[in-house]
Structures are given as C-alpha cells and as structure tokens.
C-alpha cells in the first residue's frame, strides 16, 4: 500500500537577518501566488498545516509557512545562550522580509495571526508596495494586557504548561477538542522564554496606535479577521483599528477564538476562502 503522505514539504533556507546568519525552517505546498503564513507568539508553522493541505487553496497559492528564528525547527542564532530573546517590530519585520527575499518571492501575500497579525499591520504601514495583499488575523493596533508575562519563564513554573494553560482560554468552546489540544500541544513545546520574548513585541515595542492611520489600502489591500471568542485581541479592538483604515475589509468570525487556522480549520476555511478568492 502506498504511504499516506501529507502534501507539504519541509526544508531549511539560509539567509541573513540584519547581517546575522540564520537557518530558517519552512513548509510549503501548492503553486501560484506566494502566500507566506506567520504563526502566533511562542508557536510554529504547524498551525498552518490544514491550510497547507487544502487543495482548494494550494491550486492557486504557493503556501509557505516558516518558523521564526527561535521557534519550531528554526535554530536560534549562534550565541543565543548569552542573551535574552526579545522580538521587536524591527527584528520581526526584518525576518519576514529576509525570508521573502531568500525565497525570491515576488509580491507575496502575507497572512499572520496574533503577533503575526500585528506585524502584518506594520508591513502595511511601512512596506505595503512589496506585497500583493495582507491578511491580519486576530490583529489590532493595540490590545490591553491581561496577564503578567513574568510567569512565562521562571524555574518554579513549567513554561510549556503555563503558556498552554494561559492561552487555552483564547480557543472558542465550540472548537473541536482534537484541534484545541493540538493547538495547546504546540504551545507546550516552545523554547524557554520564547513566548515571553515574543510578547515583548506585542506589549512593549509594537504599539501601532496612530501609525495605522498611514495605511493606504490602494497600495496594498488589507483584510482583518478576528474570532468572536478572542478576548486578547477582541472584536472591538479589531473594529476600532479598522475604523482608522479607509478601504480595509474586516470580518468577525463566529464561534472562533485566537487561533482560527489551527483551532477550527473547517470553520476558518469558510472565512478565508472568500478572502483568498478576492486576492487571486
């Protein structure tokens, strides 16, 4: 009997980010318009495995989901042991652009979730002309913090378990248990301090209030989609952001939380297919 293979293929690409050599892991499937997918804080590209295996999408899009440095199978840079990991607006933007350059992608679509959604807003602010379209999931220009991130990395609390337990409430109660627990499993596997380091961007460095007003959707279309059960980036946070951006398309997803593509792939598909159809 022939092996049952998922359609995506994983590889590593070598590139420099801000002059520092990196080895980035990515998975890809499909052909056509490049669609680069950005995972949430403290997670990795596996969140997009259902999208990568969806023929309705991969017949029109070359879907590429990469692990940020320090995440998943991307190695941290040499010397990582000598400093504390902190993601910034600048370093995150540089990583995305470096990946797109290294893969020689021409005007890709970028879709990101959570911190990935926030950085998509920054791409729309600062680099819109480089992209065909931008999709921000669970994104807003600012969100009110709801816990103290110092609990995420300390020797007396298991980092993986506390990260997963904290974010578990961001998953909609309607999401299928198997997908809920797979989403949590990925959160249990992040490196020490990585989720906390990602949230530095979210909480401290990545406040885009006022800046989103500079977004010109005529240069690059922008789509915002947020799940109704996301109390980290609430629908109101997203709608407030959208009101400042003429031409943006915004949608609130019913019975969905903070991780649409991994917590409820079938429901997310209903929302993302029409967006991708518009883009293609």
């Amino acid at each position: 009997m022939a092996p049952k293979l998922d359609p995506m293929v994983g590889r590593y690409v070598r590139t420099e980010i801000d002059g520092v050599p990196h080895r980035l892991y990515f998975e890809e499937a499909g052909q056509g318009i490049p669609l680069v997918c950005l995972h949430t804080a403290g997670a990795d590209n596996r969140q997009y495995r259902h999208l990568l295996a969806d023929p309705e999408i991969t017949r029109r899009f070359r879907v590429l989901a990469f692990d940020l440095p320090w995440h998943g199978k991307s190695t941290p840079p040499d010397g990582w042991e000598r400093g504390e990991y902190r993601l910034t607006t600048e370093s995150y933007t540089a990583a995305i652009r470096a990946f797109c350059r290294a893969m020689e992608l021409e005007k890709p679509v970028v879709m990101g979730c959570s911190i990935g959604g926030r950085i998509v807003l920054n791409l729309a602010i600062a680099h819109a002309a480089e992209f065909r379209a931008l999709i921000a999931l669970e994104a807003a220009d600012f969100q009110q913090p709801w816990y103290d991130t110092s609990w995420l990395h300390r020797p007396d609390v298991h980092g993986g378990e506390v990260c997963a337990a904290l974010i578990s409430g961001l998953i909609a109660p309607q999401s299928p248990p198997v997908h809920r627990h797979e989403t949590l499993w990925m959160y249990m596997q992040g490196g020490p301090g990585v989720f906390k380091g990602d949230l530095y961007f979210y909480r401290v460095d990545g406040d885009l209030r006022e800046k989103v007003k500079a977004i010109d959707t005529k240069v690059c279309p922008l789509y915002l989609l947020t799940g109704e059960y996301d109390f980290s980036c609430t629908p109101d946070d997203t709608l407030l952001t959208a009101r400042q951006i003429p031409g943006v398309e915004v949608q609130i997803m019913k019975e969905v939380g903070h991780f649409p593509m991994s917590e409820n792939p079938a429901r997310f598909r209903e929302y993302i297919l029409p967006v991708l159809a518009k883009i293609s």
Binding site: Q144, W146, Y147, L166, S168, G169, L170, A172, P173, Q174, E228, Y229, F231, T234, P235
Partner: peptide, 16 residues
C-alpha cells in the same frame, strides 16, 4: 452550557 464570548475563561473574567 455554551458560555458567551468574554465569559468563557477565567482570564476573560479577570480582564473584564
């Protein structure tokens, strides 16, 4: 039985 958004998690309650 099916809590509404914003009431479904302990931290959703503390945040509000």
């Amino acid at each position: 039985a099916m809590p509404e958004p914003g009431w479904h998690d302990l931290f959703a309650l503390t945040k509000r």
